[in-house]
């Protein structure tokens, strides 16, 4: 009896603590950052003796979007393909376990190592230079296992009889995958891509050596470097007191973007499919 009550109290206390911390962080950052946010902050380039003290973060917003979208495309396609392979094509459990092991290894690689790899392989050896593409490749490897796991889970939840019905009609796996399975989980895939994008948007280490810079304009192609919100935030804090206000502002914007995307993904994922 006492044990049960203690367990219950422990669970409530844990939940309260976590919830409290999350809410505190949000309120703290929003309160500190809200002051520096105005139209100029959102739509202008950073300026000032200490860079970022004045002006805004527009190139960083656009840069972050460019990094994220490219990473989602580069990482999402192989992620969905891998999930389809594991669920529908691979017939040997042993081979499936190997693939799963590899994916777990990838998920375990520290992101700074991915950045280093992208730098030495893409930027130096293949000489594509510091650019969005190189950074996004590193980000893509980082989010690929994340997206794969979610897509695989949703593919496994498709009613088996529906798939069997398609096979029983003499339709191939390929036709079944493209006409039944993928449309059936379309919303889950999109929400997995958005969540993967949020994950990529918040990551700094893969950008440091590969394509993120302290100052640039709005990127025009994928073969030039760009600013990014988390990297800009890091630099603003590193520069000390003069740019700290702008740092909170940047954090505010970043959290807002990620929060909205997350909400969007959740909302979209929950909507009933195929009326």
């Amino acid at each position: 009896m006492l044990k049960a009550r203690l367990t219950k109290m422990w669970a409530y206390a844990g939940m309260g603590l976590v919830l409290g911390i999350v809410i505190f962080i949000f309120i703290y950052i929003f309160a500190k950052g809200a002051g520096s946010i105005d139209l100029e902050f959102l739509l202008e380039s950073p300026r000032g003796a200490v860079l970022g003290m004045e002006g805004g973060i527009f190139p960083a917003i656009m840069g972050s979007l460019a990094f994220t979208l490219t990473a989602v495309v580069l990482g999402g396609i192989p992620a969905v393909a891998t999930a389809v392979y594991i669920v529908f094509i691979c017939k040997r459990s042993s081979f499936e376990n190997i693939i799963r092991g590899v994916l777990q290894c990838i998920a375990g690689i520290p992101s700074i190592v991915l950045g280093l790899f992208a730098y030495s392989f893409l930027v130096r050896d293949l000489a594509i230079g510091r650019c969005i593409l190189a950074s996004s490749a590193a980000l893509a490897v980082m989010i690929m296992p994340f997206i794969e796991a979610r897509v695989e889970k949703s593919l496994r939840e498709i009613p088996q009889q529906m798939l069997s019905s398609s096979y029983a009609l003499g339709c191939s796996r390929g036709y079944t995958v493209f006409h039944i399975a993928l449309p059936y989980v379309r919303q889950e895939i999109i929400s997995a891509l958005i969540l993967g994008g949020c994950f990529a948007m918040g990551a700094t280490p893969p950008l440091i050596f590969t394509g993120g810079v302290a100052f640039s304009g709005v990127p025009q192609t994928l073969l030039e470097p760009a600013m990014a919100l988390p990297l800009h935030l890091y630099l603003l804090v590193a520069q000390g007191t003069p740019s700290l206000g702008a740092a909170y502002g940047t954090a505010f914007v970043m959290m807002a973007v990620i929060l909205i995307s997350n909400a969007l993904a959740t909302f979209y994922g929950r909507r009933r499919r195929w009326k």
Partner: peptide, 8 residues
């Protein structure tokens, strides 16, 4: 099959 499974 056993349970009706029309495609959605």
């Amino acid at each position: 099959f056993q349970t009706p499974s029309p495609f959605p």
